[in-house]
Structures are given as C-alpha cells and as structure tokens.
C-alpha cells in the first residue's frame, strides 16, 4: 500500500481551499506523506494576502455564517497545521512566471517546481487527488 497522497490544487475559492487542506491534514495525521502542487488559481491558497480573503462561490456568500457556526478552522490555521504535520507545498513555477509572482509572494516553507517535481512525487502515490 502506498504511503503517499498527492494533491493538485488548481482552483482558488474558499471551498477549494477546504477540500484541499482538510484532506491534506487528515492524510498527514494518518501518517501519510503528503504533497500539494498549487497551480493556476490554486496558488491563491498559499498567497500571503489572498489566502486570507478567498472568495465564496457567487450566490453562496451566506455560507460564511455556516463556517463560523460549525467552528471550522480558518484557512490560514489549516495551512499552518498542514505545514506542522509535514505536508509539502509545491508552487508551480510556470504559473508564477505567467502571473508575475515570486516565491516571496507566498507563505514561508514552500518549494517551487515544475510539473515534473510533482510527478516525481506522485508516481507512486495513492490516491492522487485534483481540486
């Protein structure tokens, strides 16, 4: 059985962020080796400013209340937890170049790499998830 979980985060909404980080922290807490490849809008999830104000889907803004009521941890909290549990964050170099971003625009502790960096990790991972 594979002990690795590979995740691709390619969307930048708050729902996407929860899907990515809930699965990632749960897997890491279950002693899996976890890596997340952030690409295109997914880079927002680890962008220093953007991660604090990720948008809810249009027309679903009222759900913000539900998050507060259910006492769900904030995205920055989940990110910190994930890093503490050893989840590896890989930012997509190509997307960063296209968007004019550098490593300094992102939270500390990320790696920057291309598709092959992720593929190398994911080749023997099970499951590989895309959000």
């Amino acid at each position: 059985m594979s002990n690795k979980v590979a995740i691709i985060a390619s969307n930048g909404g708050v729902f996407d962020a929860y899907k990515v980080f809930n699965i990632a922290t749960a897997a890491a807490a279950t002693e899996k080796e976890v890596a997340i490849f952030f690409t295109f809008e997914g880079l927002n999830l680890i962008h220093k400013q953007a991660m604090h104000a990720l948008p809810l889907p249009e027309g679903k803004e009222h759900i913000a209340e539900g998050f507060a009521k259910a006492n769900v941890p904030s995205i920055p909290q989940l990110v910190e937890m994930a890093q503490e549990l050893g989840v590896k964050f890989i930012g997509c170099q190509m997307t960063m170049d296209v968007m004019g971003l550098t490593k300094d625009d992102f939270i500390d502790g990320i790696e920057v790499g291309g598709a092959v960096t992720f593929l190398e990790f994911a080749k023997d991972a099970s499951p590989t998830l895309t959000f």
């Binding site: 809930n22 922290t25 749960a26 807490a29 549990l85």
Partner: peptide
C-alpha cells in the same frame, strides 16, 4: 469538543 473535521483527528494524532 466544538471542533470540526479534520481537527479531532489532527488533535488526536498529536
């Protein structure tokens, strides 16, 4: 108590 998924698991692991 009062914590939502995945926090109970994360806390339990720790």
């Amino acid at each position: 108590k009062g914590l939502a998924c995945p926090m109970p698991i994360v806390k339990t692991k720790k």
